[in-house]
Write a protein that binds this DNA or RNA. Sequence first.
DNA 1: GTCTATACACCGATAGAC
DNA 2: GTCTATCGGTGTATAGAC
Lengths: 201, 201
Amino acid sequence: MKASDTTPARRMGPSGSATWHLMLDGAEAILREEGYAELTSRRVAERVGIKQQLVYYYFKTMDELMVEAFRRLSKRELERFEQAMSAERPLHEIWGIAMNTSDARLISEFMALANRSEGVRAEVIAFIERSRQLQVEALTRAIERKAVAAGKPAAALPPVAATFLATSVGLALTREAALGVSMGHAEIAGVIEQYLAALEP
Amino acid sequence: MKASDTTPARRMGPSGSATWHLMLDGAEAILREEGYAELTSRRVAERVGIKQQLVYYYFKTMDELMVEAFRRLSKRELERFEQAMSAERPLHEIWGIAMNTSDARLISEFMALANRSEGVRAEVIAFIERSRQLQVEALTRAIERKAVAAGKPAAALPPVAATFLATSVGLALTREAALGVSMGHAEIAGVIEQYLAALEP
DNA sequence: GTCTATACACCGATAGAC
DNA sequence: GTCTATCGGTGTATAGAC
Protein backbone atom coordinates (compact mmCIF):
# COMPACT_ATOMS: atom_id res chain seq x y z
CA MET A 1 0.00 0.00 0.00
CA LYS A 2 2.47 2.65 1.09
CA ALA A 3 5.30 2.92 -1.39
CA SER A 4 7.64 4.44 1.15
CA ASP A 5 7.35 4.58 4.93
CA THR A 6 8.60 8.00 5.86
CA THR A 7 9.70 6.74 9.31
CA PRO A 8 12.88 4.70 8.83
CA ALA A 9 11.99 2.30 11.68
CA ARG A 10 14.24 1.91 14.66
CA ARG A 11 16.98 -0.70 14.69
CA MET A 12 15.84 -3.80 16.57
CA GLY A 13 17.40 -6.89 18.16
CA PRO A 14 16.37 -10.52 17.76
CA SER A 15 13.66 -12.30 19.75
CA GLY A 16 14.75 -15.25 21.83
CA SER A 17 18.29 -14.17 22.66
CA ALA A 18 19.69 -14.51 26.18
CA THR A 19 19.23 -10.82 26.97
CA TRP A 20 15.70 -10.93 25.59
CA HIS A 21 14.84 -13.76 27.97
CA LEU A 22 16.57 -11.98 30.82
CA MET A 23 14.32 -8.97 30.32
CA LEU A 24 11.20 -11.09 30.34
CA ASP A 25 12.44 -12.76 33.51
CA GLY A 26 12.79 -9.33 35.07
CA ALA A 27 9.32 -8.33 33.91
CA GLU A 28 7.84 -11.48 35.44
CA ALA A 29 9.57 -10.89 38.75
CA ILE A 30 8.27 -7.33 38.89
CA LEU A 31 4.72 -8.42 38.14
CA ARG A 32 4.89 -11.14 40.76
CA GLU A 33 6.41 -9.04 43.51
CA GLU A 34 5.22 -5.51 42.84
CA GLY A 35 2.32 -5.55 40.41
CA TYR A 36 1.88 -4.20 36.93
CA ALA A 37 1.95 -0.56 37.98
CA GLU A 38 5.69 -1.01 38.53
CA LEU A 39 6.35 -2.69 35.22
CA THR A 40 8.34 0.05 33.47
CA SER A 41 11.34 -0.03 31.19
CA ARG A 42 13.44 1.62 33.90
CA ARG A 43 12.52 -0.92 36.56
CA VAL A 44 13.13 -3.84 34.21
CA ALA A 45 16.54 -2.44 33.28
CA GLU A 46 17.46 -1.84 36.89
CA ARG A 47 16.55 -5.42 37.77
CA VAL A 48 18.59 -7.09 35.10
CA GLY A 49 21.47 -4.65 35.24
CA ILE A 50 21.29 -2.89 31.89
CA LYS A 51 20.39 0.60 30.71
CA GLN A 52 16.75 1.55 30.31
CA GLN A 53 17.06 2.37 26.65
CA LEU A 54 18.25 -1.12 25.79
CA VAL A 55 14.75 -2.40 26.46
CA TYR A 56 13.71 -0.60 23.28
CA TYR A 57 16.31 -2.41 21.28
CA TYR A 58 14.56 -5.71 22.02
CA PHE A 59 10.96 -4.51 22.24
CA LYS A 60 9.24 -1.91 20.10
CA THR A 61 7.06 -0.73 22.98
CA MET A 62 6.41 -1.69 26.58
CA ASP A 63 3.11 -3.13 25.41
CA GLU A 64 4.98 -5.51 23.14
CA LEU A 65 7.17 -6.57 26.04
CA MET A 66 4.07 -7.40 28.06
CA VAL A 67 2.55 -9.39 25.24
CA GLU A 68 5.77 -11.37 24.74
CA ALA A 69 6.03 -11.98 28.48
CA PHE A 70 2.52 -13.40 28.64
CA ARG A 71 3.04 -15.44 25.50
CA ARG A 72 6.10 -17.09 27.02
CA LEU A 73 4.34 -17.69 30.33
CA SER A 74 1.22 -19.06 28.73
CA LYS A 75 3.21 -21.48 26.62
CA ARG A 76 5.00 -22.70 29.74
CA GLU A 77 1.74 -23.11 31.67
CA LEU A 78 0.00 -24.99 28.89
CA GLU A 79 2.92 -27.40 28.64
CA ARG A 80 2.70 -27.88 32.38
CA PHE A 81 -1.01 -28.68 32.07
CA GLU A 82 -0.46 -31.12 29.26
CA GLN A 83 2.20 -32.91 31.21
CA ALA A 84 -0.10 -33.06 34.24
CA MET A 85 -2.77 -34.76 32.14
CA SER A 86 -0.51 -37.71 31.56
CA ALA A 87 0.42 -38.06 35.24
CA GLU A 88 -1.03 -40.70 37.52
CA ARG A 89 -3.79 -38.53 38.97
CA PRO A 90 -4.31 -35.68 36.51
CA LEU A 91 -7.10 -33.96 38.43
CA HIS A 92 -5.06 -33.72 41.59
CA GLU A 93 -2.24 -32.30 39.50
CA ILE A 94 -4.49 -29.64 37.99
CA TRP A 95 -5.77 -28.62 41.37
CA GLY A 96 -2.22 -28.44 42.64
CA ILE A 97 -1.26 -26.13 39.80
CA ALA A 98 -4.32 -23.95 40.39
CA MET A 99 -3.20 -23.57 44.00
CA ASN A 100 0.39 -22.63 43.16
CA THR A 101 0.73 -19.20 44.71
CA SER A 102 3.34 -17.38 42.70
CA ASP A 103 2.00 -18.14 39.25
CA ALA A 104 -1.57 -17.39 40.31
CA ARG A 105 -0.43 -13.93 41.28
CA LEU A 106 1.35 -13.56 37.98
CA ILE A 107 -1.69 -14.60 35.99
CA SER A 108 -3.84 -12.26 38.06
CA GLU A 109 -1.65 -9.35 37.05
CA PHE A 110 -1.86 -10.27 33.39
CA MET A 111 -5.63 -10.48 33.64
CA ALA A 112 -5.70 -6.95 35.00
CA LEU A 113 -3.35 -5.91 32.21
CA ALA A 114 -5.70 -7.51 29.70
CA ASN A 115 -8.30 -4.85 30.48
CA ARG A 116 -5.89 -2.16 29.30
CA SER A 117 -3.97 -3.73 26.43
CA GLU A 118 -5.54 -5.21 23.33
CA GLY A 119 -2.52 -7.35 22.62
CA VAL A 120 -2.41 -8.84 26.09
CA ARG A 121 -6.18 -9.31 26.03
CA ALA A 122 -6.05 -11.47 22.91
CA GLU A 123 -3.37 -13.69 24.44
CA VAL A 124 -5.19 -14.00 27.75
CA ILE A 125 -8.43 -14.99 26.06
CA ALA A 126 -6.65 -17.65 24.03
CA PHE A 127 -4.96 -18.97 27.15
CA ILE A 128 -8.17 -19.21 29.18
CA GLU A 129 -9.99 -21.03 26.41
CA ARG A 130 -7.18 -23.45 25.66
CA SER A 131 -6.49 -24.36 29.26
CA ARG A 132 -10.18 -24.78 30.01
CA GLN A 133 -10.50 -27.03 26.99
CA LEU A 134 -7.60 -29.19 28.20
CA GLN A 135 -9.08 -29.48 31.65
CA VAL A 136 -12.52 -30.37 30.36
CA GLU A 137 -11.06 -33.16 28.28
CA ALA A 138 -9.15 -34.61 31.20
CA LEU A 139 -12.13 -34.38 33.52
CA THR A 140 -14.48 -35.94 30.98
CA ARG A 141 -12.15 -38.91 30.57
CA ALA A 142 -11.84 -39.35 34.34
CA ILE A 143 -15.60 -39.22 34.87
CA GLU A 144 -16.24 -41.71 32.10
CA ARG A 145 -13.70 -44.14 33.52
CA LYS A 146 -15.36 -43.86 36.91
CA ALA A 147 -18.90 -44.22 35.52
CA VAL A 148 -17.96 -47.27 33.49
CA ALA A 149 -16.27 -48.87 36.48
CA ALA A 150 -19.32 -48.29 38.69
CA GLY A 151 -21.92 -48.87 35.98
CA LYS A 152 -23.48 -45.50 36.82
CA PRO A 153 -24.92 -42.74 34.60
CA ALA A 154 -23.01 -40.11 36.69
CA ALA A 155 -22.64 -36.34 36.55
CA ALA A 156 -24.92 -33.82 38.23
CA LEU A 157 -22.02 -31.44 37.65
CA PRO A 158 -21.02 -30.99 33.99
CA PRO A 159 -17.23 -31.19 33.48
CA VAL A 160 -16.95 -27.64 32.18
CA ALA A 161 -18.76 -26.35 35.26
CA ALA A 162 -16.48 -28.34 37.54
CA THR A 163 -13.29 -27.02 35.95
CA PHE A 164 -14.58 -23.46 35.94
CA LEU A 165 -15.39 -23.86 39.58
CA ALA A 166 -11.97 -25.27 40.44
CA THR A 167 -10.17 -22.48 38.61
CA SER A 168 -12.24 -19.67 40.14
CA VAL A 169 -11.95 -21.12 43.62
CA GLY A 170 -8.22 -21.74 43.30
CA LEU A 171 -7.62 -18.17 42.20
CA ALA A 172 -9.78 -16.71 44.93
CA LEU A 173 -8.10 -18.86 47.58
CA THR A 174 -4.58 -17.81 46.63
CA ARG A 175 -5.56 -14.17 46.26
CA GLU A 176 -7.21 -14.05 49.68
CA ALA A 177 -4.37 -15.99 51.27
CA ALA A 178 -1.97 -13.35 49.95
CA LEU A 179 -4.05 -10.71 51.75
CA GLY A 180 -4.12 -12.73 54.95
CA VAL A 181 -7.76 -13.82 54.83
CA SER A 182 -8.50 -17.47 55.57
CA MET A 183 -12.17 -17.62 56.55
CA GLY A 184 -13.79 -20.67 54.97
CA HIS A 185 -10.62 -21.74 53.17
CA ALA A 186 -10.26 -25.04 55.00
CA GLU A 187 -13.89 -25.93 54.33
CA ILE A 188 -13.79 -25.15 50.64
CA ALA A 189 -10.49 -26.98 50.14
CA GLY A 190 -12.01 -29.96 51.94
CA VAL A 191 -15.01 -30.03 49.63
CA ILE A 192 -12.84 -29.89 46.53
CA GLU A 193 -10.47 -32.57 47.73
CA GLN A 194 -13.39 -34.79 48.61
CA TYR A 195 -14.69 -34.39 45.09
CA LEU A 196 -11.26 -35.15 43.62
CA ALA A 197 -10.79 -38.19 45.85
CA ALA A 198 -14.12 -39.57 44.65
CA LEU A 199 -12.92 -39.39 41.05
CA GLU A 200 -9.27 -40.32 41.59
CA PRO A 201 -8.92 -42.60 44.61
CA MET B 1 5.70 12.45 72.20
CA LYS B 2 6.80 15.21 69.82
CA ALA B 3 6.33 18.56 71.53
CA SER B 4 6.26 20.42 68.22
CA ASP B 5 5.80 19.12 64.69
CA THR B 6 8.22 21.07 62.57
CA THR B 7 6.04 20.68 59.46
CA PRO B 8 3.08 23.09 59.80
CA ALA B 9 0.68 20.67 58.05
CA ARG B 10 -1.07 21.67 54.88
CA ARG B 11 -4.52 23.30 55.01
CA MET B 12 -7.27 20.71 54.48
CA GLY B 13 -10.98 20.66 53.64
CA PRO B 14 -13.75 18.71 55.36
CA SER B 15 -14.70 15.10 54.64
CA GLY B 16 -18.20 14.48 53.38
CA SER B 17 -18.77 17.73 51.49
CA ALA B 18 -20.32 17.78 48.05
CA THR B 19 -17.00 18.26 46.27
CA TRP B 20 -15.44 15.51 48.38
CA HIS B 21 -18.14 13.09 47.22
CA LEU B 22 -17.80 14.29 43.66
CA MET B 23 -14.12 13.38 43.69
CA LEU B 24 -14.83 9.90 45.02
CA ASP B 25 -17.47 9.49 42.31
CA GLY B 26 -14.84 10.39 39.76
CA ALA B 27 -12.36 7.96 41.28
CA GLU B 28 -14.93 5.16 41.15
CA ALA B 29 -15.76 5.87 37.53
CA ILE B 30 -12.08 5.76 36.60
CA LEU B 31 -11.53 2.45 38.41
CA ARG B 32 -14.60 0.96 36.77
CA GLU B 33 -13.86 2.10 33.26
CA GLU B 34 -10.09 2.35 33.07
CA GLY B 35 -8.51 0.51 35.97
CA TYR B 36 -6.40 1.58 38.88
CA ALA B 37 -3.36 2.52 36.79
CA GLU B 38 -5.34 5.54 35.58
CA LEU B 39 -6.41 6.64 39.04
CA THR B 40 -4.33 9.81 39.35
CA SER B 41 -5.05 13.23 40.77
CA ARG B 42 -4.91 14.72 37.27
CA ARG B 43 -7.43 12.26 35.84
CA VAL B 44 -9.82 12.66 38.75
CA ALA B 45 -9.69 16.43 38.43
CA GLU B 46 -10.23 16.28 34.69
CA ARG B 47 -13.29 14.08 35.21
CA VAL B 48 -15.05 16.23 37.71
CA GLY B 49 -13.99 19.55 36.19
CA ILE B 50 -11.66 21.00 38.78
CA LYS B 51 -7.94 21.67 39.04
CA GLN B 52 -5.58 18.83 39.91
CA GLN B 53 -4.23 20.53 43.01
CA LEU B 54 -7.66 20.78 44.60
CA VAL B 55 -7.59 17.03 45.15
CA TYR B 56 -4.90 17.67 47.76
CA TYR B 57 -7.14 20.08 49.60
CA TYR B 58 -9.57 17.25 50.30
CA PHE B 59 -7.17 14.32 50.55
CA LYS B 60 -3.73 14.27 52.11
CA THR B 61 -2.40 11.79 49.55
CA MET B 62 -3.76 9.73 46.67
CA ASP B 63 -3.54 6.73 48.93
CA GLU B 64 -5.93 8.37 51.36
CA LEU B 65 -8.32 9.09 48.51
CA MET B 66 -8.29 5.41 47.58
CA VAL B 67 -8.92 4.31 51.13
CA GLU B 68 -11.82 6.73 51.49
CA ALA B 69 -13.24 5.60 48.17
CA PHE B 70 -13.19 1.98 49.21
CA ARG B 71 -14.57 2.78 52.64
CA ARG B 72 -17.55 4.51 51.07
CA LEU B 73 -18.11 1.72 48.57
CA SER B 74 -17.79 -1.01 51.16
CA LYS B 75 -20.32 0.68 53.43
CA ARG B 76 -22.74 0.93 50.53
CA GLU B 77 -22.24 -2.73 49.58
CA LEU B 78 -22.69 -4.03 53.10
CA GLU B 79 -25.94 -2.09 53.44
CA ARG B 80 -27.06 -3.59 50.18
CA PHE B 81 -26.26 -7.08 51.49
CA GLU B 82 -28.09 -6.51 54.74
CA GLN B 83 -31.14 -5.28 52.90
CA ALA B 84 -31.01 -8.33 50.64
CA MET B 85 -31.06 -10.62 53.67
CA SER B 86 -34.48 -9.37 54.63
CA ALA B 87 -35.90 -9.75 51.13
CA GLU B 88 -38.17 -12.59 50.09
CA ARG B 89 -35.47 -14.83 48.64
CA PRO B 90 -32.18 -13.65 50.20
CA LEU B 91 -29.94 -16.15 48.45
CA HIS B 92 -31.18 -15.22 45.02
CA GLU B 93 -30.57 -11.60 45.96
CA ILE B 94 -27.01 -12.32 47.02
CA TRP B 95 -26.26 -14.16 43.83
CA GLY B 96 -27.77 -11.30 41.87
CA ILE B 97 -25.46 -8.85 43.61
CA ALA B 98 -22.44 -11.08 43.02
CA MET B 99 -23.27 -11.07 39.32
CA ASN B 100 -23.68 -7.30 39.06
CA THR B 101 -21.05 -6.40 36.51
CA SER B 102 -19.98 -2.88 37.30
CA ASP B 103 -19.45 -3.30 41.01
CA ALA B 104 -17.63 -6.59 40.57
CA ARG B 105 -15.17 -4.81 38.35
CA LEU B 106 -14.80 -2.06 40.90
CA ILE B 107 -14.16 -4.50 43.72
CA SER B 108 -11.65 -6.34 41.54
CA GLU B 109 -9.68 -3.14 41.09
CA PHE B 110 -9.65 -2.47 44.81
CA MET B 111 -8.43 -6.00 45.47
CA ALA B 112 -5.52 -5.36 43.14
CA LEU B 113 -4.92 -2.06 44.88
CA ALA B 114 -4.91 -3.88 48.22
CA ASN B 115 -1.68 -5.59 47.22
CA ARG B 116 0.03 -2.21 46.99
CA SER B 117 -1.53 -0.10 49.72
CA GLU B 118 -1.61 -1.01 53.38
CA GLY B 119 -4.54 1.25 54.05
CA VAL B 120 -6.65 -0.22 51.27
CA ARG B 121 -5.61 -3.71 52.27
CA ALA B 122 -6.94 -3.32 55.80
CA GLU B 123 -10.29 -2.10 54.49
CA VAL B 124 -10.55 -4.85 51.90
CA ILE B 125 -9.84 -7.55 54.48
CA ALA B 126 -12.48 -6.16 56.80
CA PHE B 127 -14.98 -6.04 53.94
CA ILE B 128 -14.37 -9.61 52.81
CA GLU B 129 -14.72 -10.96 56.31
CA ARG B 130 -17.83 -8.99 57.15
CA SER B 131 -19.66 -9.75 53.94
CA ARG B 132 -18.77 -13.43 54.13
CA GLN B 133 -20.06 -13.52 57.70
CA LEU B 134 -23.35 -11.98 56.62
CA GLN B 135 -23.76 -14.45 53.79
CA VAL B 136 -22.96 -17.43 55.97
CA GLU B 137 -25.61 -16.38 58.46
CA ALA B 138 -28.25 -16.00 55.78
CA LEU B 139 -27.37 -19.31 54.17
CA THR B 140 -27.34 -21.15 57.49
CA ARG B 141 -30.82 -19.88 58.29
CA ALA B 142 -32.12 -20.87 54.85
CA ILE B 143 -30.66 -24.37 55.09
CA GLU B 144 -32.07 -24.91 58.55
CA ARG B 145 -35.53 -23.83 57.45
CA LYS B 146 -35.33 -26.26 54.55
CA ALA B 147 -33.99 -29.12 56.70
CA VAL B 148 -36.66 -28.64 59.35
CA ALA B 149 -39.39 -28.56 56.72
CA ALA B 150 -38.13 -31.77 55.10
CA GLY B 151 -37.07 -33.50 58.29
CA LYS B 152 -33.59 -34.03 56.83
CA PRO B 153 -30.12 -33.79 58.37
CA ALA B 154 -28.91 -31.82 55.30
CA ALA B 155 -25.64 -30.25 54.17
CA ALA B 156 -22.89 -32.04 52.29
CA LEU B 157 -21.73 -28.50 51.47
CA PRO B 158 -20.95 -26.34 54.53
CA PRO B 159 -22.50 -22.84 54.27
CA VAL B 160 -19.16 -21.07 54.37
CA ALA B 161 -17.93 -23.23 51.49
CA ALA B 162 -21.06 -22.51 49.50
CA THR B 163 -20.77 -18.75 49.91
CA PHE B 164 -17.06 -18.77 49.12
CA LEU B 165 -17.86 -20.71 46.01
CA ALA B 166 -20.63 -18.35 44.93
CA THR B 167 -18.44 -15.30 45.43
CA SER B 168 -15.44 -16.72 43.59
CA VAL B 169 -17.54 -17.96 40.72
CA GLY B 170 -19.48 -14.71 40.46
CA LEU B 171 -16.27 -12.69 40.28
CA ALA B 172 -14.69 -15.00 37.73
CA LEU B 173 -17.81 -14.97 35.56
CA THR B 174 -18.04 -11.20 35.41
CA ARG B 175 -14.31 -10.80 34.85
CA GLU B 176 -14.27 -13.25 31.97
CA ALA B 177 -17.45 -11.82 30.50
CA ALA B 178 -15.73 -8.43 30.43
CA LEU B 179 -12.93 -9.99 28.37
CA GLY B 180 -15.39 -11.65 26.02
CA VAL B 181 -14.93 -15.23 27.21
CA SER B 182 -18.08 -17.29 27.79
CA MET B 183 -16.99 -20.94 27.67
CA GLY B 184 -18.77 -22.87 30.41
CA HIS B 185 -20.60 -19.82 31.75
CA ALA B 186 -24.09 -21.10 30.99
CA GLU B 187 -23.35 -24.45 32.61
CA ILE B 188 -21.91 -23.02 35.80
CA ALA B 189 -24.73 -20.48 36.14
CA GLY B 190 -27.18 -23.33 35.66
CA VAL B 191 -25.61 -25.35 38.45
CA ILE B 192 -25.69 -22.45 40.87
CA GLU B 193 -29.26 -21.53 40.05
CA GLN B 194 -30.31 -25.12 40.51
CA TYR B 195 -28.74 -25.12 43.94
CA LEU B 196 -30.45 -21.85 44.82
CA ALA B 197 -33.81 -23.06 43.57
CA ALA B 198 -33.53 -26.13 45.79
CA LEU B 199 -33.09 -23.92 48.82
CA GLU B 200 -35.45 -21.10 47.86
CA PRO B 201 -38.27 -22.40 45.68
C1' DG C 1 -13.05 26.79 48.49
C1' DT C 2 -10.63 27.22 44.37
C1' DC C 3 -7.05 28.91 41.72
C1' DT C 4 -1.90 29.83 39.83
C1' DA C 5 2.78 28.76 40.09
C1' DT C 6 6.08 25.61 40.72
C1' DA C 7 9.33 21.75 42.44
C1' DC C 8 11.05 17.46 41.27
C1' DA C 9 10.88 12.43 40.02
C1' DC C 10 9.79 9.16 36.70
C1' DC C 11 7.87 7.56 32.31
C1' DG C 12 8.06 6.03 27.15
C1' DA C 13 10.53 6.65 23.33
C1' DT C 14 14.11 8.31 19.74
C1' DA C 15 18.88 9.45 17.66
C1' DG C 16 23.20 8.42 17.24
C1' DA C 17 28.09 7.33 19.17
C1' DC C 18 31.09 3.44 20.43
C1' DG D 1 24.88 -5.16 21.38
C1' DT D 2 25.17 -1.61 24.54
C1' DC D 3 25.89 2.95 25.72
C1' DT D 4 25.11 8.45 26.23
C1' DA D 5 22.21 12.24 25.44
C1' DT D 6 17.88 14.00 25.30
C1' DC D 7 12.78 14.99 24.34
C1' DG D 8 8.00 15.90 25.86
C1' DG D 9 4.66 14.22 28.91
C1' DT D 10 2.69 12.94 33.30
C1' DG D 11 2.84 11.95 38.17
C1' DT D 12 2.65 13.52 43.43
C1' DA D 13 2.80 17.16 46.25
C1' DT D 14 3.58 22.03 48.31
C1' DA D 15 3.09 27.30 48.87
C1' DG D 16 0.58 30.94 48.55
C1' DA D 17 -2.70 34.36 46.03
C1' DC D 18 -7.66 35.41 45.32
